[in-house]
Computed example of a mutant assay.
Amino acid sequence: MSESRTYAAVAMQLAARSVERAPDRAAARQMMMETIATLGPKLRSASVFIEQYGGAPVRLAVLPEYLLTSYPGRISIPEFADRAALEIDGPEYEAMGKIAQEQKLHLAGNAYETDKHFPGLYFQTSFVIAPNGNVVLRYRRLNSMFAPTPHDVWSKYLDVYGLDGVFPVARTDIGNLAAIASEEILYPEIARAHALRGAEIFVHSSSEIGSPVATPKMIAKRARAFENLTYVISANTAGIVDTALPEASADGNSMIVDWKGNVIAESNSGETFTAFADIDLAALRAARRKPGMTNTLSRQRNALFAASYAAETHQKADSLIREGGVITPDRDHFKRVSEETIARLAKDGLI
């Protein structure tokens, strides 16, 4: 794609539908496919409106976090994996791939996913599907409070996927795309690791509190954009259906942030496509290639921090590795790890 061209990106603010109360696996899978079936018409009508409104053609659409299933709740990890986690080449990806093909756009989203290399576990996965229907980016969430992550099986995960598989960047004709999952927007290192590999646009699927005042995540989105000279396309849920929570607890404030840290589009509450904006890659790339105080990415001196990050003082890797094998944890495992980490840091005088 020529750098002189622009295109539109849209953060689709849609309601997630919980499968926790589905009677069995088949019912849960049917619910997920029903949700996918609603996406095509909503994306198509949003794209038509955006272009009629005067925008460029929509080439990138971002969906909210765990749109197909909602969060796991207290279901055991094996049960939730069986009920709600997608297979890498499963029918759900095929159905979403058809939408991307039919509408000639990149479709980014987030789902729970199984992996044949790690039986008994699932990972929360952010993905990008290209206009040819293929998944061109698969990023597994690295920092989660209550679910398995690649860091919990770190030594084996690196053997299987390598570091480029941990921080993948998809080089596409609409720019270099990378994913940040939900709460991870609060961790500067995750965004930075992607930016150091060339990421220009962060797709951020989230399910978070919406508010008329700035929340930590809202502040972080602007910070991650400015400090890395990247766009952030952040799609929030429009509430979560069929859980014990009030439906609008995670609703509103989907946004697009430009590489200067400016919010250039933001939604109110409810299901909506109103967080859309033109993406100007030429301007972003020109800023990255110009020396100056605001070029925070090129001015990074990574060697200054390497020793501090190499010291494994905080949360340790491989919490789910025992005697060289992967174990399946109970839900409280992750809380225990956190408590043990805090106790150790306090003992060592680090917190």
Rank of each mutant, 00 (worst) to 15 (best):
D258T: 04
Y53Q: 15
A283R: 11
T341E: 12
Y53F: 11
A22E: 15
T125Y: 00
P131K: 07
I240H: 07
A108R: 04
I190T: 04
R192P: 01
S126Y: 03
S76V: 08
I77Q: 02
T114V: 13
L320N: 00
A56C: 12
N176S: 15
V62L: 11
L86Q: 10
Q300N: 07
D89Y: 08
R224F: 00
P72E: 09
R288V: 09
S308R: 12
F202C: 05
M218L: 13
A343Q: 10
Y161Q: 04
I185A: 09
P119R: 09
D159C: 03
D251G: 03
G133Y: 13
K221R: 12
M33D: 14
N295H: 06
D24K: 02
P188V: 10
A199L: 03
A26C: 09
Y161D: 05
K42N: 10
S126H: 02
M32F: 11
S205F: 01
P150A: 05
R344S: 00
Y93D: 06
A61E: 00
M218P: 00
Y231M: 03
P131T: 11
P78T: 08
K260F: 10
F276T: 02
A46R: 02
A111S: 14
L14E: 03
V58G: 00
P78G: 07
D318A: 13
H194T: 04
K42I: 04
R74L: 07
E339H: 11
E94T: 15
G261K: 06
D258A: 05
G261E: 11
N295I: 01
A307C: 09
A225N: 09
G73E: 01
E94M: 12
N134D: 13
L43R: 00
I351C: 09
P216S: 08
M255Q: 14
V203W: 05
S269Y: 06
T328W: 04
L163D: 14
F49G: 01
H194L: 15
T149Q: 08
K156W: 07
D330K: 12
Q103W: 08
A282D: 15
V213N: 12
R288H: 10
T125L: 07
A282V: 07
A111V: 15
S211V: 09
H117D: 15
R59Y: 10
V62N: 05
A56F: 06
Q52N: 14
P23L: 06
K104V: 06
R21G: 14
I36S: 02
G261H: 10
R141F: 03
V58T: 12
L196V: 10
V10W: 05
L137D: 01
G261L: 09
L60Q: 01
A37M: 09
M96Y: 06
S234R: 03
E200I: 08
P57L: 02
L86D: 07
A22R: 05
Q300C: 08
A235T: 10
A179E: 04
A8S: 15
R74M: 10
W259D: 02
D242N: 15
V263T: 15
